[in-house]
Design a binder for these strands. Structure first.
Lengths: 102, 102
DNA sequence: ACTTTGTGTTAGTTGCTACTTTCGTAAGCA
DNA sequence: TGCTTACGAAAGTAGCAACTAACACAAAGT
């Protein structure tokens, strides 16, 4: 999966808050919604986005649906940013060496 | 600065592409724009967003404006995600220990 | 002074996205 | 079989964001 869906998923403040919530403990859709001032369907949509981005996992038991954070999803972005960052640093390092060498 | 502006800045595919471009080397606004199919003002706006997020630095010389990636800006998100991620892992570790302990 | 070059700014348009309201559905209970 | 609970899905709306076209402006050349 590309990184953009994951990035735009956590770029939304509300979704980041949801993610922080289900990172602490597994919660049902209703429990999550009760923490916010928006309607339940809105939260449901956010959960759908997070799930599609691979940032949360869903577990159904009866009529309830429990959600929990999926650290592997976060690891993906982290790895991407690390590569991006390290490449950038390498570039700077090479530039500095070239500067020194002349 | 909070993380959301930085995250939403790089969540935009075009801006991420611009960032990848100025990460390689310092480029002028026009040079950056020539890499894309959109108009120059559009790129100018994107550069404004990236600059506001602290992801690029601007250097003016004559009528030209050169942009380069600012690794510190990327480091900020990376640090944030690492904390987020590590907290999540700690939580999992504690849960596993509790599981083992019973 | 005039023109050209390189760029940001503004106004207006289109398209996306977060939201609400309403409806549908599956599971549990009387 | 109803009735309730706990959800997601669909449709419609409002606001924002990415874009274009036209303008403004500063620096450098002629």
């Amino acid at each position: 999966m590309s990184v953009s869906p994951v990035l735009s998923a956590i770029a939304e403040p509300r979704r980041l808050a949801i993610l922080a919530l289900v990172k602490e403990s597994e919660l049902s859709s209703g429990e999550i919604a009760s923490h916010f001032a928006v309607t339940r369907p809105a939260i449901s949509q956010h959960l759908g986005v997070l799930k599609a981005a691979g940032l949360v996992a869903e577990r159904r038991v009866g009529t309830k649906r429990f959600y929990r954070a999926r650290p592997q999803g976060l690891a993906e972005i982290r790895a991407f940013l690390e590569t991006f960052w390290d490449d950038s640093l390498q570039r700077l390092k090479r530039a500095a060496e070239a500067e020194e060498g002349r």
